[in-house]
């Protein structure tokens, strides 16, 4: 058992979501940064998809009511146990009565707190992932709040494990996402197409698990516009789809993003880089780099060979 003393900016219970219901308007959702989520679970000896707490921006305070093992991965939030610094990316035993405090995120925006055995939540369509717009999963479909008590679920499958050197992902306040051209990329002006790949964007305050509205990070404004006015009807979107509304400021769909939309879909973030998009918070800089389909497939193979056990990597069951 653990108790939330302070939920911080926004903390939610997440697993790997509920794929297969986008035709009903339900995004698969789950952890925004699957890589750090998986590493935290792996380290405490859990299956990689066990429910864990996703802390956005920081401020989470937790009191443990039993002895267990925890691991924090993702954005650096100066974690402390009873006021003493806690090393990230390292499984650490905690005792009944210990208090964990997270401060404000430095690089990136989300940290994952995994607990040996995982946490219990309310399942919907096979997942306890919290989806706030429809109040699904988690505890009554809501973000965690002070006073919430979470029950430790099952027993871990393994003893705590040490994340080997070289496997800790590097986060930065400038995120570079590799992208493929989206279905309407060619409808943009040549200058807009160029700006997408040379421009430096910044996530505005309008950023959450659903998406992030981008603007130019420099004094020179960037406007991404179609070559001629186009009439579009609503069509499917995926996490990582960059849409370009008429005001010229692109919107990047994130893990809880809308399932359909009606603006030109200019870019699609490749799977290997989607976890990084989950670290975009207000003020983080974003750049896009062009990637072609065979290249994206090769990158995916390489990344999986590193992190996915089935391909010679680290974590059982995991894949980008």
């Amino acid at each position: 058992m653990l108790e939330i003393l302070n939920a911080g900016t926004q903390s939610t219970l997440q697993d790997i979501g509920r794929p297969g219901y986008r035709h009903q308007g339900i995004p698969s959702g789950g952890a925004a940064d699957t890589l750090n989520f998986a590493l935290a679970n792996w380290s405490v000896g859990n299956p990689w998809n066990s429910p864990a707490i996703e802390c956005t921006m920081g401020g989470l305070h937790v009191k443990f009511k039993s002895n267990t093992v925890i691991c924090i991965c993702g954005a650096e939030m100066w974690a402390q146990i009873n006021g003493k610094p806690l090393q990230m990316y390292k499984a650490t035993p905690v005792k009944n009565g210990d208090i964990l405090t997270l401060s404000y995120a430095r690089d990136g925006c989300r940290a994952y707190l995994a607990i040996a055995g995982g946490l219990e939540g309310q399942a919907f369509l096979g997942s306890v992932a919290t989806y706030l717009p429809a109040k699904l999963g988690g505890i009554n479909g809501c973000a965690l709040k002070s006073g919430d008590r979470l029950t430790l679920a099952t027993r871990p499958i393994s003893a705590p494990r040490t994340i080997p050197k070289g496997y800790i992902p590097r986060l930065s306040r400038h995120i570079i996402l590799r992208v493929m051209a989206g279905p309407e990329f060619k409808t943009l002006t040549a200058e807009s197409q160029r700006q997408l790949f040379v421009g430096l964007f910044e996530a505005t305050a309008a950023t959450d698990r659903m998406g992030t509205r981008l603007q130019s990070a420099t004094e020179k404004p960037i406007s991404i516009v179609p070559a001629r006015p186009i009439s579009m009807v609503s069509g499917p979107l995926l996490p990582g789809t960059l849409q370009t509304p008429p005001d010229g400021h692109p919107i990047l769909a994130l893990i809880d993003g809308h399932c359909t939309g009606g603006y030109p879909r200019a870019l699609q973030v490749i799977r290997s880089d989607l976890w990084q998009a989950g670290q975009i918070g207000p003020g983080i800089r974003v750049s896009f780099r062009r990637c072609f389909d065979t290249e994206a497939q090769a990158i995916l193979k390489g990344r999986n060979a590193f992190y996915a056990k089935a391909y010679g990597g680290l974590i059982e069951g995991f894949a980008f």
């Binding site: 794929p19 297969g20 986008r22 035709h23 279905p183 009807v233 609503s234 069509g235 499917p236 995926l238 399932c259 359909t260 799977r271 497939q297 995916l300 999986n304 996915a308 089935a310 391909y311 894949a319």
Partner: peptide, 17 residues
């Protein structure tokens, strides 16, 4: 994995593994 209709399009997704 997903088969998602739009007004004038249909999206299908699969597991690249």
């Amino acid at each position: 994995i997903e088969i998602v209709p739009g007004y004038n399009s249909l999206l299908v997704t699969f597991d690249p593994q």
